[in-house]
Design a protein around this nucleic acid. Sequence first.
DNA 1: GGACTTATCTGTATCCCACAGATATCTACC
DNA 2: GGTAGATATCTGTGGGATACAGATAAGTCC
Lengths: 164, 164
Amino acid sequence: MSRTTKGAADAERPGDDTLSRVELQLALLLRRAERTGAVRAGHTPALERSGYLLLLVLGTEGPLGINALAERQGLDASTVTRQVVSLEKAGFARRGRDPQDGRAVRVEATAAGRRQLEYERVRRAALYDQVLADWSPVERATLASLLERLNQDLDAFRREPEGR
Amino acid sequence: MSRTTKGAADAERPGDDTLSRVELQLALLLRRAERTGAVRAGHTPALERSGYLLLLVLGTEGPLGINALAERQGLDASTVTRQVVSLEKAGFARRGRDPQDGRAVRVEATAAGRRQLEYERVRRAALYDQVLADWSPVERATLASLLERLNQDLDAFRREPEGR
DNA sequence: GGACTTATCTGTATCCCACAGATATCTACC
DNA sequence: GGTAGATATCTGTGGGATACAGATAAGTCC
């Protein structure tokens, strides 16, 4: 079927070929990275991953509605609704009705939200600075590039799974 | 403090420097990759990520106890207990008492479990073969290597956060 | 003004995971 | 041999992230 996986029920052992390596490392990464940036030693972050990414979009693209936010992030609108409620509760976002369209909502980052976003960004960068302590600038840049490309390709794949 | 992050409350915009790029892309990746391998189009996978990784350890290192499994994966034992129960319910693992130590448990993959693991592995590899359709073999290999290294470094960091 | 569409929200369900507190065993030591 | 402490696992509980389905409110169109 797929050229690279050959006989499917092949005799490869886990980790043998490149794709399996990538796949396995990604599975591991999901778990590792999740916990690393998060609840380190009782430090409950004011901003979880979801809120962080949401604020980032808000900060970059200004006030948006729920659907727009959901679309930009490839999430369900119901998920975004809850994330916004949560940000609002924390004082990092504000929700107002769209004057043009009474159904729609206008989500906006507050000053505290922008501050917190910046704080998080710096904190996370510092964290990875430590994790990648042994990496050369070139290696770090390569990692960044490959991840960017991987994310783009994952996005593209989600939009239209190539195989049918 | 950290050489690369300079002034901390610096004027960098998101994505400006390498660390921010890495950090951001990882945050995005967590979300993307999670959904991609998983519930694609009603295809409820018999093996979720957690069960997959657990079976992988079991397959590689043979029968193990809960604590050993938890340690190898950097998880809490309570989490592993539930994962094992779930695998057992699905018929992919078996749990028996350790004859030497009545407190301990011996978790073992069943034949069905090994079959399913292999099936998953192939399925996931094929998936990434599609996602990485445009990548050259060298690029794929680079990605695999960098991810492996990143995971190692994340692991090391979790064990002993370098800064204090 | 009724019918259809759209934007958001609420209900419900699934994963994944951790921490705290049982419970059952084992090990040491007197 | 019995008791105290260590150890292995399990159970209770709770939180984060997300999706799908259905409810509600507000536009739009004829």
